[in-house]
């Protein structure tokens, strides 16, 4: 076991980990931050996406020891300081961008990363960027709509073509 130290959602944390301890396991089991979900074992589904130093990564495919000293943001760190839903979170609720909620943390984290990179994405940009986040409930319609809405774009009357 070795000690790992990082900043999670603005708070300095540390814990004892094995070499093989994944960041997702450190967050869920070590810190009790169970909002980060694990939905597959092949690094495809994206339910585990968190931000490491501002960049989205799949926390099930990163060792906790490999992000020693980094700043990590999880879904639990996305609310406004007053505890209300943050901009992307609120857009997901407003536009019914989630159903069972399991893929949602990863979706929100990826969506937030997209908007940081590309504040006014097109529909195609959003769909392409979310390639690594699988949702089984929504057919993606309202997720894409929510992300476009979070970017401040008008989403009334969106349908194919």
């Amino acid at each position: 076991m070795t000690k790992v130290t990082m900043t999670v959602n603005g708070r300095a944390v540390s814990g004892e980990v094995e070499g093989r301890t994944l960041l997702s396991a450190f967050l869920r089991e070590g810190l009790g931050l169970t909002g980060t979900h694990v939905g597959c074992d092949t690094s495809q589904c994206g339910a585990c996406v968190v931000h490491v130093d501002g960049q989205p990564v799949k926390s099930c495919t990163v060792f906790a020891s490999d992000v020693e000293g980094a700043s990590v943001t999880t879904i639990e760190g996305m609310a406004n300081p007053d505890g209300t839903l943050g901009r992307v979170q609120q857009a997901f609720q407003d536009h019914h961008g989630l159903q069972c909620g399991f893929c949602t943390p990863g979706m929100v984290m990826s969506a937030a990363a997209l908007l940081a990179e590309n504040p006014k994405p097109t529909e195609a940009d959003v769909r392409h960027y979310l390639e690594g986040n699988i949702c089984r409930c929504t057919g993606y319609h309202n997720i894409v709509k929510a992300v476009l809405a979070a970017s401040g774009q008008d989403v009334s009357g969106l349908a194919a073509e």
Binding site: L33, I75, F92, Q93, H96
Partner: peptide
């Protein structure tokens, strides 16, 4: 709007594997 969304969006859902 769905009330359950708030806990899911906050990372405060309580799924089976979340329970210790």
């Amino acid at each position: 709007k769905r009330r359950e969304d708030v806990r899911f969006l906050m990372g405060l859902g309580n799924y089976t594997d979340d329970m210790a």
